[in-house]
Design a protein around this nucleic acid. Structure first.
Ligand SMILES: [Mn+2]
Ligand SMILES: [Mn+2]
Ligand SMILES: [Mn+2]
Ligand SMILES: [Mn+2]
Lengths: 221, 221
DNA sequence: ATATAAAGTTAGATTAATCTAACAAAAATA
DNA sequence: TATTTTTGTTAGATTAATCTAACTTTATAT
């Protein structure tokens, strides 16, 4: 009923809404690398199917039905990434491209088997939450590392940018989810952080990097 | 370069060629459930891409290049079926539909990981050979059970019809690959066979069933 | 406030994959 | 051999998804 192409629009619209609140045609167009005129037509089609609220020149919004459908596609994407890492031995930098395709497989049983074999995981290999079977998603209350203060000790919980390049950058520095990071000091000039973690007594992380790392403060409970 | 649709045509053309030698437009049309006129157009397109030899009113033939491409798709299909059975716990009757979709995933690494995790299997869950990385396929010398004689003991090596209904029929009768079957007698009238296997001292198999079971004779070596 | 730039829409064209209907060739039957 | 049936092709229409080009609306800058 929903085509592969439509699924990609719904998913990207959902992701953009989470990131930036309001979504306009231009943004979605850039993200999907599809011309604005095409996006406009597709929005009208999805509005016809009651998956999107569409009014000319207004920001784009998913309907409740649209949010659920998008959530279910993202669920399949993230379950797949988890399966690829946990059960097939891929690195977290290699799974997104494959999941981008497998998320469109039409088979309830296939994803149920994955879910079961993984022990019903709630986060994917990049720390993003996996929507439940009703397509509902809840983001844990993470903070950006860049917003933390000197002296704090935090735990790396998720990464925002999941580009292969960024993830390889983290691999080289031996950073992975669950890592305990101590903020030694923050350079006022460029907001870079001097931190220590694992076997590394001192590493410098640029603000660009710190903006992309989501952490939980230690000893909250 | 080769679309999902084109892949399905190539694969079905390959399969039909193996089964019945010559393939005509009508057969391929029925198998794909696509009208003959559409098949004709597609054959012209595939001829343009040098994947098929096409001449009006002549039987359809894959080129060498076409055979290799088809073999590689079938390889992905069968590796997937094996993975679904061996690593994900599906029954052999449930894997074809899913493999029909996953065979089109574009990722060398994905199928290499499957292959590796499965220990480089050479046959799929239905006993069909898995083409090698060059798309080459070799069928072992199996015989149809229907062609065996009374008194012979054979080993079930493959099933021809892989419809879910037939495989469930075999499940009910506790028949699976590797099973040793003794042919007690053959009814001349309808060619049905009385056989014994596993814990079953006597079962009757219709000729329709025996035509679909491929076996190896015991004690060949 | 006006001009310019950016964002968004509409109209019309294109490509892939499909169909129906009319026609043509080949095969089977009488 | 002549007729009928089956198989195959061609022409033209349709749908989904895309594009370019022209135009309009909204936002930004002077
Ligand atoms: Mn991803
Ligand atoms: Mn996708
Ligand atoms: Mn199969
Ligand atoms: Mn397929």
């Amino acid at each position: 009923m929903i085509s592969l192409t439509e699924e990609n629009y719904l998913k990207e619209l959902f992701n953009l809404s989470s990131e930036s609140g309001e979504v306009n045609v231009n943004e979605l167009s850039k993200r999907l690398e599809i011309k604005m005129s095409t996006v406009t037509s597709m929005m009208k089609k999805l509005a016809e199917k009651e998956l999107v609220h569409y009014e000319s020149y207004k920001p784009l919004k998913l309907t409740e039905k649209g949010k659920i459908e998008a959530g279910l596609i993202i669920r399949k994407h993230r379950l797949t990434e988890m399966f690829l890492v946990e059960k097939m031995g891929f690195g977290w930098e290699d799974v997104h491209e494959i999941a981008e395709q497998i998320e469109h497989i039409q088979s309830v049983g296939f994803f149920e088997k994955m879910d079961e074999q993984l022990g019903y995981p709630t986060i994917d290999p990049h720390g993003s939450p996996i929507p439940d079977k009703n397509g509902k998603i809840v983001w844990p209350t993470y903070s950006k590392l860049s917003e933390c203060k000197a002296g704090e000790t935090v735990r790396l919980s998720a990464v925002i940018n999941t580009s292969s390049e960024f993830l390889k950058f983290l691999n080289v520095r031996e950073m992975k989810l669950g890592l305990k990071i101590k903020i030694k000091s923050i350079e006022i000039f460029d907001k870079s952080m001097e931190v220590s973690y694992g076997k590394k007594p001192s590493e410098t992380l640029s603000n660009i990097v710190c903006e992309r790392l989501l952490v939980e403060k230690e000893g909250r409970f």
